[in-house]
Lab assay of single mutants.
Amino acid sequence: GCWSIEHVEQYLGTDELPKNDLITYLQKNADAAFLRHWKLTGTNKSIRKNRNCSQLIAAYKDFCEHGT
């Protein structure tokens, strides 16, 4: 299931919640338009490089609020 937004804000980028895991989750569960909008298409590695934690948190919040 979903992590809470508080959990993501607190732990994203740590061993508790690697950016990797959040990106994988969104790529698996969000639709193509969402991924394009948040620039989460492409390889996990390129996304990790190009999107910082606050951008990923914003995307995750949007996903939780509007889910697909």
Rank of each mutant, 00 (worst) to 15 (best):
R51E: 08
A33I: 13
S46V: 08
E16K: 15
R51S: 10
D31P: 10
T14K: 13
N20Y: 11
C53I: 09
R51K: 14
D31T: 14
L12I: 09
E16R: 15
R48T: 09
T41W: 10
Y60Q: 01
W38F: 04
S46K: 15
L26C: 01
F34A: 02
D31V: 03
E6V: 09
H37M: 11
A59G: 02
I23F: 03
G42M: 05
L12M: 04
D31N: 10
A32L: 11
A58E: 13
N44V: 12
R36H: 07
F63W: 12
L12K: 00
G13M: 02
Q10D: 09
L35A: 03
I5T: 07
R48A: 11
A33D: 13
N52C: 07
G13I: 00
A58R: 11
T43Q: 09
W38P: 00
L17V: 03
W38N: 06
L35Q: 06
C53T: 10
A33L: 09
W3V: 02
N44M: 13
C2E: 13
I23C: 02
D31H: 12
D15K: 15
N44W: 05
S4M: 07
A33Y: 06
Y60W: 10
P18W: 03
Q27C: 10
I57A: 09
L17W: 00
S46N: 15
L17Q: 02
L35W: 02
S4R: 07
D31M: 02
Y11S: 09
D21F: 08
T68S: 11
I57N: 04
D31Y: 04
G13K: 01
L40C: 03
W3D: 03
H7A: 05
K45D: 08
L35H: 03
Y60H: 08
T24D: 15
T41I: 12
N29L: 03
R51H: 15
L35F: 02
W3H: 04
N29M: 08
I57L: 15
N29Q: 09
E16D: 13
A30T: 06
S54M: 13
N29D: 03
R51F: 14
G13V: 01
D31L: 02
K28T: 12
A33C: 11
Y25R: 02
F63Y: 13
I5F: 15
E65K: 15
I5S: 06
N20I: 14
G42N: 04
N29I: 02
I5Q: 07
G1R: 11
G1N: 11
Y11P: 00
Q27M: 10
A30N: 04
C64V: 13
G42C: 05
F34S: 03
E65A: 14
I23Q: 01
K39V: 04
Q55E: 08
F34C: 02
D21Y: 04
H66Y: 13
C2S: 14
T68P: 15
S54N: 09
E6N: 09
R36Q: 13
Q10N: 12
C53A: 07
P18R: 14
L56K: 01
G42A: 07
F34Q: 04
R51V: 11
W3M: 06
E65D: 10
F63Q: 02
Y60F: 08
G42K: 07
A32I: 13
Q55T: 12
N50A: 12
G67M: 09
V8W: 00
T24V: 12
G42T: 05
E16M: 14
K49T: 08
L40G: 00
K49M: 05
K19W: 05
I23P: 01
F63R: 01
C64H: 08
A32T: 11
T14H: 06
L40M: 13
I5M: 11
R48K: 14
I5R: 05
H7M: 11
D21A: 15
E6M: 09
P18G: 05
Y25W: 13
C64G: 05
L56I: 07
R48D: 07
F63E: 01
Q27A: 06
H37N: 11
R36I: 07
N44D: 08
C2F: 15
N44S: 13
R48P: 06
R48F: 07
Y25F: 14
K28H: 08
Q55C: 07
N20L: 15
D31S: 05
H37F: 14
L12A: 05
G42R: 07
L35T: 03
K39Q: 10
T41G: 08
C64M: 15
I47T: 10
K61C: 06
T43W: 08
Y60M: 04
A32P: 11
K45L: 08
Y60N: 00
L12G: 02
R48Y: 08
I47V: 14
A59W: 00
I5N: 05
G13Q: 02
I57R: 10
H7F: 11
C53N: 07
E65V: 11
E16W: 09
T24N: 07
